Computed example of a mutant assay.
Amino acid sequence: MTSAITTDLSSREGWTRWAERIHALAEERDAVILAHNYQLPEIQDVAHHVGDSLALSRVAATATQSTIIFCGVHFMAETAKILSPDKRVLIPDAAAGCSLADSLTAEELRTWKAENPGAMVVSYVNTTAAVKAETDICCTSSNAVEVVASIPADTPVLFGPDQFLGAHVRRMLGRDNIQVWGGECHVHAGINGDQLRAQAEGHPDAELYIHPECGCATSALYLAGAGAVPEDRVKILSTGDMVTAAARSTSRQVLVATEIGMIHQLRRAAPGVEFLPVNERASCKYMKMITPEKLERSLLELRDEVDVDPETAAKARGAVQRMIEIGNPGGGE
């Protein structure tokens, strides 16, 4: 095995040789490679499992390998460690963070809880381990509605940190006792209603796949309600549910409002459909920090390891396990 990538990955033959090397290293290290849907295409194609945060959490919880290489952002690797504390969890770049996870700290959550005694805390999985430790139930975008619906209707809910997903949950359930934190993913917040309207007008027959973290989710429902877009063409979906919908789609075109890495998986699921990003600049710099070179280095050097304080992990584990048990088994973040 070489200690650095020397193959030109731009050719199919070069990529195949590199993928064979990565898989051989993974077998030697007794490692499973997990990749999120927003990763670079080369990373998605070489991973043993590709999916959203919920699907990958389920894999991490049941993986038989002793080492998990998580190609995603830091909170995802933390979640894998929470679920599999006895396994070694590595992330190819420890600096791959998340603007949404950074928008709510454990200290801020404790203050919020103190101001609202008796409320249940539902935290999006896009949070730090410390925030999960202060949480009653975690959720993903696919099961957020089901998670909140599982809480008695007369019990106040503190939902954080994503304001757009929280607004979606509140809209779907019609509950006025849901307080929503004001956080956001900088990538999804940047996909706005004007962009969506322009793309929808330019592609009048296209379906719309909208991630509920997007700033344009409300605009999509408004366009449908106003008759600008047929209601049956507007779908508010998690990334995992987008793949499922794509495989079943009979449309020729689909407009996609989420991070552009998702387009790769959608095209694989439905090669006969043209998938177009609503905003072609909606790229997460943190997700794209995981490169083929860094993945290979991680396998060769067994770095960078992600650890979670055992006490924090123990407090967080119940909230994450409840997330896995509730709602859609096939979709997640």
Rank of each mutant, 00 (worst) to 15 (best):
Cys185Met: 05
Ala206Glu: 08
Ala220Gly: 10
Glu207Ser: 09
Ala198Ile: 04
Ile191Cys: 12
Leu208Ile: 06
Arg197Asp: 05
Gly225Trp: 00
Gln199Glu: 14
Ala189Phe: 05
Gly215Pro: 10
Ile191Asp: 02
Ala224Leu: 06
Gly193Tyr: 02
Gly227Tyr: 07
Leu223Glu: 03
His188Lys: 11
Leu221Ile: 03
Asp232Cys: 02
Ser219Met: 03
Glu201Met: 06
Ala200Met: 03
Ala217Phe: 08
Glu207Ile: 02
Ile210Asp: 00
Ala189Tyr: 08
Ala206His: 01
Ala224Trp: 00
Ala220His: 00
Gln199Lys: 15
Gln195Trp: 02
Asn192Gly: 14
Arg233Thr: 08
Ile210Thr: 08
Asp205Asn: 15
Ile210Met: 10
Ala224Cys: 07
Ala189Ile: 04
Glu213Ser: 13
Asp205Lys: 14
Tyr209Arg: 14
Ile191Lys: 04
Gln195Ile: 05
Thr218Ile: 13
Gly202Trp: 07
Asn192Ala: 05
Ser219Glu: 09
Gln195Ser: 05
Val187Gly: 12
Glu201Asn: 10
Val187Asn: 03
Val187His: 07
Thr218Val: 13
Asp194Gly: 09
Leu221Glu: 10
Asp194Val: 15
Gly227Phe: 03
Glu231Val: 13
Glu231Tyr: 01
Ile191Phe: 06
Ala198Ser: 13
Leu196Thr: 08
Val187Gln: 08
Ala189Arg: 13
Asn192Trp: 02
Ala228Lys: 14
Leu221Pro: 00
Gly193Met: 02
Gly202Thr: 10
Cys216Asp: 03
Ile210Gly: 02
Cys185Asp: 10
Ala226Phe: 04
Ala228Thr: 00
Ala224Ile: 09
Pro212Ile: 02
His186Arg: 13
Pro212His: 03
Ala200Phe: 01
Gly193Cys: 05
Leu223Met: 14
His186Phe: 13
Cys214Ile: 06
Val229Arg: 05
His203Glu: 06
Asp205Leu: 07
Gly202Phe: 07
Asp232Asn: 09
Cys185Trp: 03
Leu221Asp: 06
Gly193Asp: 07
Ala226Val: 04
Gln195Thr: 06
Gly202Pro: 12
Ser219Tyr: 00
His188Thr: 01
Arg233Cys: 01
Gln199Leu: 14
Ile210Asn: 03
Gly193Thr: 03
Ala198Met: 09
Gly190Ala: 14
Tyr222Pro: 00
Leu221Tyr: 01
Leu196Pro: 01
Ala200Glu: 01
Gln195Lys: 14
Ala226Lys: 12
Tyr209Met: 14
Gly225Arg: 14
Ala189Gln: 08
Val229Cys: 02
Gln195Met: 15
Asp205Trp: 08
Gln199Pro: 04
Ala226Glu: 11
Cys216Pro: 09
Asp232Trp: 00
Ala200Trp: 00
Gly190Met: 07
Thr218Lys: 13
Ser219Cys: 07
Gln199Trp: 06
Pro204His: 09
Ala200Pro: 09
Leu208Glu: 05
His188Tyr: 09
Thr218Ala: 15
Ala217Pro: 01
Tyr222Lys: 15
Gly202Met: 11
Leu221Ser: 09
Cys214Trp: 01
Asp232Ala: 12
Cys216Gly: 04
Ile210Gln: 01
Ala189Thr: 04
Gly227Val: 08
Glu213Tyr: 03
Asp194Met: 11
Glu213Val: 11
Gly227Trp: 05
Ala200Val: 09
Arg197Pro: 01
Cys216Trp: 03
Ala189Val: 05
Ala217Trp: 09
Val229Gly: 00
Glu231Ser: 15
